[in-house]
Amino acid sequence: MADLAYPSLVYVHLLLFVLWLGADVGVFVLGQHFRKRDRYTLPERLVLLRLLVTVDMVPRSTWALMVPLSLSVAAAGNWVVLPLWLIVLAWIVAAGWLWLVWDAHAHDQTPRAARDRRIENWLKIALTLFYFGLGALWLVTDAAPAWLAWKALLFGAIFAAAIMIDVAFKPVGPQLGRLLTEGSSDTTEVPLLATMNRTRYWVWCVYALLVVTSWIGVVKPG
């Protein structure tokens, strides 16, 4: 059974990557179709938006699970020595993060959801700093292979880009509310489209970073 632990963790790690990137592409495609006011009626576009929010729960969930799993894979493969307490803490943090994500989804548009998302935002900032610090420490001390250190740094960059997606997307709430209240027109649609266009740049950043990070993890250059 011990011989199966590491390859099984690697398999789950790859599975989460596929779910993360695949579902995120689905979110992107649904968002692209939501933008097409000349092809769909407003009620149809709102259905697409509801589907987008539902599909988006997959990458949000896999992102949280990637944190403890990445550390578990590194430790189980003997790529780096990590204290047991750190791995246990990572799984506890991931469980709390998952709860915040799903609780906010279940109570959307309420003060409770807003509170959950504020806590989640601070957690993501803390994890961004953690992975940047961990990657830099490994590079300086040679405590881990260089490819693993760069993977940690890139994972921190994924966190940073994903945070910027949320920042860029923030005006969508009020803009969408105005669209629902006033109906579809250039006045309500153009600002919404501009916000979505700005968000796309950070989405592409996340995709590129995910591809590079996964390549480094599989090829292990150097």
Rank of each mutant, 00 (worst) to 15 (best):
L49I: 02
W138L: 02
M1V: 09
Q175C: 11
A143E: 08
L89A: 15
G133H: 09
K170D: 14
L48D: 00
A194C: 06
N197D: 14
L16I: 10
V218W: 12
V12E: 10
A160Q: 11
L82R: 01
E182N: 06
A208G: 05
C205Q: 11
E182D: 10
L139M: 08
I216N: 02
A95Q: 10
P43N: 03
V206Y: 10
G31H: 03
F17Y: 02
W150I: 02
F169T: 12
Q109D: 14
V81T: 14
G156I: 08
Y201P: 00
K124T: 15
K220G: 04
P7N: 12
T141S: 09
Y131E: 11
D186F: 11
N78P: 02
R35H: 05
V88I: 06
V27E: 05
W122C: 07
S72F: 13
L98A: 13
P191G: 03
I163E: 03
L15N: 07
L69V: 05
R118F: 13
W20Y: 07
L209H: 14
L192A: 01
R198C: 08
A23I: 15
A149N: 04
T128V: 14
L129G: 08
P174S: 09
G156H: 01
W63T: 06
V29P: 07
D103P: 01
L14P: 00
V67T: 08
A144H: 08
A113R: 07
M57E: 09
L86P: 05
A94Q: 08
K220Q: 14
G31Y: 01
I165Q: 07
L209P: 15
A126P: 07
Y201H: 05
L30K: 00
D186K: 06
V10R: 01
Y11K: 07
T187K: 06
Y201I: 03
P145W: 12
K36P: 00
R50N: 06
S61Y: 09
T141C: 02
M57D: 08
V140E: 04
R35V: 00
F159M: 04
V53A: 11
I92N: 06
L21F: 05
A160H: 13
L210V: 10
V27D: 03
V27Q: 03
W85V: 09
A146R: 00
R60Y: 13
A64I: 04
A143T: 08
L180P: 01
T110M: 13
H107A: 07
V47D: 00
A194R: 10
